[in-house]
Structure formats: structure tokens, C-alpha cells
């Protein structure tokens, strides 16, 4: 089953660049990536730039509206994601627990939509 691990965190709580905590976080991310690769579960994943770089778009009455900023102003932002393929939720959760941001943010684990449940 495929899951997306969505990494939400408050940038104010994130270790800042140049501190030993930041280095630990980065090496923990590296270790998580390596583990997911080695176990053959990693399908993909990226980190995102800050919400100040976000541009949002919606169509209202047939007209495209473009705005500066994210979809919603919240304290915890989507900062990145992984897509993994594991046997079940428990297995997905055990990989989510490796993501260092879980220590100061939240990892939301969501199954991907299966458009072909019969597997044909």
C-alpha cells in the first residue's frame, strides 16, 4: 500500500542553520532516506521551500485568480513529503517515526488513492 508522509512543522520551532541541533536533524534525515531506500520502500519525496515562496491559484467564475502566499495561514506548514510503499499502516508509521521533524512537528500519514483496487 502506498502512503504519503506529509511533514508539517512550525519553522519557528525548527533548529536553525549552523547549530549542532540543525546538523543532527540533517543527519537524521539522511539516515531516514537511506533506510527507506535500503528497505526498498521509498517511491519519492522532496523538501519544500518556505511558504513565502508559495503562489496560490483558484478559478472563480471562469477567471483565474492568482495570489501570493499559501492555501491557508497556519502555524504548522507543509514542509516536505515522502511517498513510500509498505505492507500496512504500522510499517508506514515506523518509517514516519524516523523523520526528525516528528520531534517538533507532525507527520501526517495518508494512504494514496488506489484507482485500480483489483490490481488488474
Amino acid at each position: 500500500m502506498k502512503y504519503m508522509l506529509l511533514i508539517f512543522n512550525d519553522p519557528a520551532l525548527e533548529p536553525s542553520y549552523g547549530t549542532p541541533e540543525f546538523d543532527t536533524m540533517m543527519s537524521d534525515f539522511f539516515a531516514a532516506n537511506e533506510k527507506m531506500k535500503a528497505d526498498g520502500v521509498l517511491c519519492g519525496g522532496e523538501g519544500l521551500q518556505g511558504i513565502e515562496t508559495a503562489t496560490s491559484l483558484r478559478i472563480k467564475a471562469g477567471k483565474v485568480e492568482t495570489m501570493d502566499g499559501p492555501f491557508a495561514e497556519t502555524r504548522e506548514h507543509l514542509g516536505g513529503y515522502y511517498v513510500i510503499d509498505t505492507a500496512d499502516l504500522d510499517s508506514a508509521l515506523s518509517y514516519a517515526a524516523l523523520i526528525p521533524s516528528a520531534n517538533f512537528g507532525t507527520i501526517e500519514v495518508r494512504p494514496l488513492m488506489d484507482y485500480n483496487p483489483a490490481g488488474n
Binding site: 500500500m1 502512503y3 509498505t86 505492507a87 500496512d88 499502516l89 504500522d90 510499517s91 508506514a92 508509521l93 515506523s94 494512504p111
Partner: peptide, 14 residues
């Protein structure tokens, strides 16, 4: 079913 909750006795770390 949708969340993929397995039918298993959890592993030691969980």
C-alpha cells in the same frame, strides 16, 4: 481497510 491497518501483533518497538 482504507488506512491499511494490518492484521498483526505489533512489533516490539510499537
Amino acid at each position: 481497510k482504507a488506512k491499511g491497518i494490518g492484521f498483526a501483533v505489533p512489533q516490539s518497538e510499537m
